[in-house]
């Protein structure tokens, strides 16, 4: 099975970090994977996006043009990538920042007020991880088991104090019905 994931939002929302988490989780599970960031001027405040491919086979293109899973963290990202999602795919929307609904009816959509939840829980920079918690609840392309190891890998030794809050953010997302 191959899963193509596109995470998109503003620079500073932890888009690339969320992708790194999934990539590291995939690595720990012994999967094939690729992680590709958008790079360049858009990193400084504009849109940022990140392609992650997880597979059991060698990966061809690392550029996700037709995502199975889209995580949209702002309106421009949903506007830009909604039509690219494969029929039967899944779209996760940060409904605290995106007021409109997904317009397609051949995809599954989940609305998570992640940015609001992050603020309410005193972890305002971790809306990205709340989104991932919900993604892991609804999708099975990575397993929840061994989540601590993946968080530990991606939170560098320098910022070990952030281990607990990242884990908490994931669990907040995971508990959303």
């Amino acid at each position: 099975m191959t899963t193509q994931i596109l995470i998109a939002g503003f620079g500073g929302q932890g888009i690339l970090f969320a992708g790194k988490f999934l990539a590291n989780k995939g690595l720990l599970e012994g999967r094939q994977l690729s992680w590709l960031p958008s790079y360049g001027p858009e990193m400084r405040g504009g849109t940022a996006n990140c392609s992650v491919v997880l597979s059991d086979q060698p990966i061809g293109s690392p550029i996700v043009t037709k995502p199975d899973v889209l995580i949209a963290m702002n309106l421009p990202s949903l506007d830009k990538y909604e039509s690219a999602v494969v029929p039967g795919g899944v779209i996760f929307v940060d409904s605290a920042l995106i007021e409109r609904k997904v317009r397609r009816n051949d995809v599954k959509a989940y609305y998570i007020p992640a940015t609001k939840l992050a603020q309410q829980n005193g972890i305002p920079t971790l809306a990205n991880m709340i989104m991932l918690g919900k993604v892991m609840r609804e999708c099975d392309f990575v397993s929840y088991e061994g989540i601590e190891d993946a968080v530990r890998t991606v939170v560098s030794a320098k910022h070990a104090d952030l281990f607990d809050v990242n884990l908490r953010a994931i669990n907040i997302g995971r508990e959303i019905e």
Binding site: L27, Q32, L36, Y39, P62
Partner: peptide, 10 residues
């Protein structure tokens, strides 16, 4: 090229 330079893989 920029893609292979910027991407991460195991």
């Amino acid at each position: 090229d920029g893609t292979v330079g910027q991407m991460m893989e195991p």
